[in-house]
Design a protein around this nucleic acid. Structure first.
Lengths: 211, 211
DNA sequence: CGCCGAAGTTGCTGCTGTCAACATTATTGG
DNA sequence: CCAATAATGTTGACAGCAGCAACTTCGGCG
């Protein structure tokens, strides 16, 4: 059994990461403080430096964690649906992720986690885009999308949902509820072939509500 | 003529704003410091508090300034072109603005400048969206766009270019040059009716290079 | 001419990131 | 089985920052 408080924490890196995630959810990226994270892990103010180069390194770890969560969420959408529906569903999942954890999402995309300095974060982001890419590829293989320019089509889809997510989190849209934003997103992804009217009351896929 | 250094600066608010804009362009939003801005305006570290409530208030002023600049840039595109071309051009202008001043752009959109606390900033953002809205309305009046749902169409266009701008600034695209990003943007805005091939070497409208 | 409020200054507190030196524990080679 | 050593955590220090309080200077108004 562990004594009152052993000198060595045992799992400090993970504890700091979790504390950082909570802190950011509560007070935003600027609210993240190495000292406060250390406090929440019941450890001295300098212990974090054994596991993270500096504050930005901890932030990058939070971003990496966010990319992994987002990848899992996007990849786990209804396997029985058609490729195109799975792609659209993943777009809704993307936006819902951003709406549910706006600060975490901001950490992921509002700082330039460049390849040389933060390779793990860049790799996680790359994996995230990879799942989008394969969703697009599936659509093309199923002839639900023109077969050319896979990358460009993926970047186009990403840009649209990312813009929606960012503008919604910035408070630039007039819609109050998250459901309304998601409906707008669903309608925007449907393209010119989608239903022209009543987009504000259209239903959403069920699984989107369960992220 | 002004003597060596009078006790009163005379135009400190504007000087602080300009210093803040420069500082942010150099070192990003986190690099903005009330004390450094005061230093660049050759005043004491507490003088800024006579003109700005706190650091965030100065940041909001920078954001407001950015929205005004962006509005002017978007509204000034080639009056001889057709409404649809003017709309597309303003989209390119939007992205180019973001690429040219990424940090300023980040200040505008990465913080929630909500209506009650920062009314001037919210008003400037509203004016910015207003010019986009009237561009869309012009397209509809010229029958270059379906006449329904003006707002939704404007938000859709905004989301697309905003997503492109943000992802480009986050380094998530593989394209190295700004011109390549702009070509991708032009192609994405053209929709299914646009040229299907050779999008990477397509020319851009001239005026886009002059922002 | 005197007064008052606006604009600017100095000085202070508490917080932060980060460095350096030290203490304790885990691990591993002999 | 134990000592050397690396890994982990601690205490203490310094400089920079935001923001508050008290003081000073200046322009304008009676």
């Amino acid at each position: 059994m562990p004594a009152a408080r052993p000198y060595h924490h045992g799992n400090l890196k993970q504890a700091l990461l979790e504390a950082a995630v909570e802190l950011i959810a509560e007070t935003g990226p600027r609210g993240l403080t190495l000292r406060e994270a250390a406090r929440r892990a019941s450890v001295s103010h300098n212990a974090p430096y054994r596991h993270f180069r500096d504050r930005d390194d901890l932030l990058a770890a939070v971003a990496t964690d966010g990319f992994d969560r987002l990848t899992r969420a996007m990849a786990s959408g209804g396997r029985k649906a058609s490729p195109l529906n799975r792609l659209r569903r993943s777009g809704l999942t993307y936006v819902q992720f951003a709406l549910r954890w706006p600060q975490h999402f901001a950490v992921m995309f509002d700082m330039p986690w460049n390849q040389p300095d933060y390779p793990e974060c860049a790799a996680a982001a790359e994996r995230c885009f990879g799942t989008l890419l394969s969703l697009v590829r599936d659509c093309q293989a199923a002839k639900q999308m023109p077969p050319d320019d896979t990358e460009r089509r993926a970047y186009h889809a990403w840009s649209l949902v990312h813009g929606i997510a960012k503008l919604a989190n910035a408070g630039q849209f007039p819609w109050r509820s998250k459901a309304e934003v998601l409906r707008f997103c669903a309608f925007s992804m449907a393209g010119p072939g989608g239903p022209a009217q009543d987009w504000r009351s259209a239903p959403l896929p069920d699984s989107v509500s369960s992220i």
